[in-house]
Amino acid sequence: MNATEFQQRIVVMHPSMFRAAVAILGNADDAADAVQDTMVKLWQNADALDDLTNVQAYAFATLRNQALDVQRRRSAHPAVDLTAVSDPPADEPRSPSDLEVIAQIVEELPAKYRQVTRMSIYQNLSTAEIASATGLSNDNVRQILSRSRQKIKQLYQNLKQ
């Protein structure tokens, strides 16, 4: 994949990738770094991207791994904000937002469900648009989205109990 193709097929995904990264990490700065690092990794591996049948899914999988790395580093070395004296102590874990919880649940869904749900949430695509992008039928996309949402609700309730 040359520079022009990379720009047209991969770089254009940065808004939805950024939203996904924020949802996973809960922090815009970390999300921007994660997206940039992901793009660099994809570019370094650009020759192999031509052989992939689903570049978008691969790009999001790379982003997910990058975001999880950031999370691991963050939990191993928690940052302390010296200006926020009224905040809770640094060793008190921050409770994740609902968006972060939902994003984590989405990442645990089976591949096809995860892809369709990501498109719905982070790219705000309609059923028809998702069907066009994935090659699935409208009914199939609707069925997958339906099952995904019910599964997310069930897992969220399990986590909160």
């Binding site: 520079a3 022009t4 990379f6 720009q7 770089v11 940065h14 808004p15 950024f18 939203r19 996904a20 924020v22 949802a23 815009a28 921007a32 997206v35 940039q36 793009m39 660099v40 994809l42 570019w43 650009a46 937002s97 609902d98 968006l99 919880v101 939902i102 994003a103 719905s120 949430i121 982070y122 705000n124 949402r149 997310i152 609700k153 969220y156």
Partner: peptide, 27 residues
Amino acid sequence: AIILAMADAAAIEEPADMEQRILAATC
């Protein structure tokens, strides 16, 4: 939680220079 998370995700605005950062770091 699900409905508001979806709305929050859709409303996330990325930094204005995000694309320039990516292009400078890659192709």
